[in-house]
Protein backbone atom coordinates (compact mmCIF):
# COMPACT_ATOMS: atom_id res chain seq x y z
CA UNK A 1 0.00 0.00 0.00
CA UNK A 2 1.08 3.56 -0.70
CA UNK A 3 0.89 6.20 2.01
CA UNK A 4 0.21 9.92 2.18
CA UNK A 5 0.64 12.55 4.88
CA UNK A 6 -2.69 14.20 5.49
CA UNK A 7 -3.05 17.41 7.47
CA UNK A 8 -6.42 18.89 8.37
CA UNK A 9 -6.67 22.57 9.21
CA UNK A 10 -8.97 24.61 11.44
CA UNK A 11 -12.46 23.13 11.75
CA UNK A 12 -11.44 20.00 9.80
CA UNK A 13 -9.14 18.99 12.65
CA UNK A 14 -12.07 17.39 14.42
CA UNK A 15 -11.81 14.56 11.87
CA UNK A 16 -8.11 13.99 12.56
CA UNK A 17 -8.80 11.28 15.14
CA UNK A 18 -10.10 9.09 12.29
CA UNK A 19 -6.85 9.28 10.40
CA UNK A 20 -4.03 6.90 11.23
CA UNK A 21 -0.53 8.46 11.46
CA UNK A 22 0.29 6.92 8.08
CA UNK A 23 -2.73 7.21 5.86
CA UNK A 24 -2.73 4.29 3.47
CA UNK A 25 -4.10 4.64 -0.04
CA UNK A 26 -4.14 2.63 -3.23
CA UNK A 27 -1.74 4.14 -5.77
CA UNK A 28 -3.81 5.97 -8.37
CA UNK A 29 -6.66 6.71 -5.93
CA UNK A 30 -8.54 10.00 -6.28
CA UNK A 31 -8.23 12.28 -3.27
CA UNK A 32 -12.03 12.63 -3.24
CA UNK A 33 -12.40 8.86 -2.68
CA UNK A 34 -9.74 8.87 0.05
CA UNK A 35 -11.61 11.65 1.84
CA UNK A 36 -14.91 9.78 1.51
CA UNK A 37 -13.33 6.62 2.98
CA UNK A 38 -12.12 8.68 5.96
CA UNK A 39 -15.64 10.14 6.33
CA UNK A 40 -14.46 13.73 5.96
CA UNK A 41 -17.31 15.70 4.36
CA UNK A 42 -16.10 17.10 1.02
CA UNK A 43 -18.51 20.05 1.30
CA UNK A 44 -16.53 21.33 4.30
CA UNK A 45 -13.32 21.47 2.24
CA UNK A 46 -12.67 24.72 0.35
CA UNK A 47 -8.97 24.49 -0.38
CA UNK A 48 -6.70 21.54 -1.20
CA UNK A 49 -2.91 21.55 -1.33
CA UNK A 50 -0.86 18.63 -2.60
CA UNK A 51 2.91 18.89 -2.03
CA UNK A 52 2.53 22.59 -1.30
CA UNK A 53 0.55 23.47 -4.44
CA UNK A 54 -3.13 24.30 -4.77
CA UNK A 55 -4.92 21.30 -6.16
CA UNK A 56 -8.38 19.74 -6.12
CA UNK A 57 -10.19 16.74 -4.69
CA UNK A 58 -10.07 15.20 -8.17
CA UNK A 59 -6.30 14.91 -8.10
CA UNK A 60 -4.86 11.41 -8.29
CA UNK A 61 -2.43 10.27 -5.60
CA UNK A 62 0.50 7.92 -6.10
CA UNK A 63 1.74 7.77 -2.52
CA UNK A 64 4.31 9.90 -0.74
CA UNK A 65 2.32 13.12 -1.19
CA UNK A 66 1.71 15.69 1.55
CA UNK A 67 -1.95 16.70 1.42
CA UNK A 68 -3.43 19.71 3.26
CA UNK A 69 -7.18 20.29 3.48
CA UNK A 70 -8.75 23.62 4.49
CA UNK A 71 -12.21 24.88 5.28
CA UNK A 72 -12.92 28.53 4.41
CA UNK A 73 -11.35 30.82 7.05
CA UNK A 74 -12.60 34.40 7.27
CA UNK A 75 -12.46 35.68 10.86
CA UNK A 76 -10.60 38.69 12.15
Amino acid sequence: MAQIQLKLFASLQKYAARIPPRCEITAGARLRDVIARLQIPAENIRLVFVDGRRSSLDTTLQGGERVGLFPPVGGG
Partner: peptide, 22 residues
Protein backbone atom coordinates in the same frame (compact mmCIF):
# COMPACT_ATOMS: atom_id res chain seq x y z
CA UNK B 1 -11.17 33.22 -5.91
CA UNK B 2 -8.15 30.96 -5.35
CA UNK B 3 -8.67 30.93 -1.58
CA UNK B 4 -12.46 30.79 -1.20
CA UNK B 5 -13.44 29.56 -4.65
CA UNK B 6 -15.46 31.57 -7.16
CA UNK B 7 -18.33 33.53 -5.60
CA UNK B 8 -21.52 31.49 -5.53
CA UNK B 9 -25.03 32.31 -4.42
CA UNK B 10 -25.82 31.10 -0.92
CA UNK B 11 -22.16 30.77 0.07
CA UNK B 12 -21.81 31.31 3.82
CA UNK B 13 -20.40 34.70 4.91
CA UNK B 14 -18.43 33.12 7.71
CA UNK B 15 -15.86 30.39 7.57
CA UNK B 16 -14.50 27.99 10.18
CA UNK B 17 -14.41 30.83 12.71
CA UNK B 18 -18.18 30.42 13.08
CA UNK B 19 -17.55 27.12 14.88
CA UNK B 20 -14.04 27.74 16.27
CA UNK B 21 -14.16 31.38 17.39
CA UNK B 22 -11.13 33.67 17.06
Amino acid sequence: DLIYGAPAAGQPQKGAEASLGT
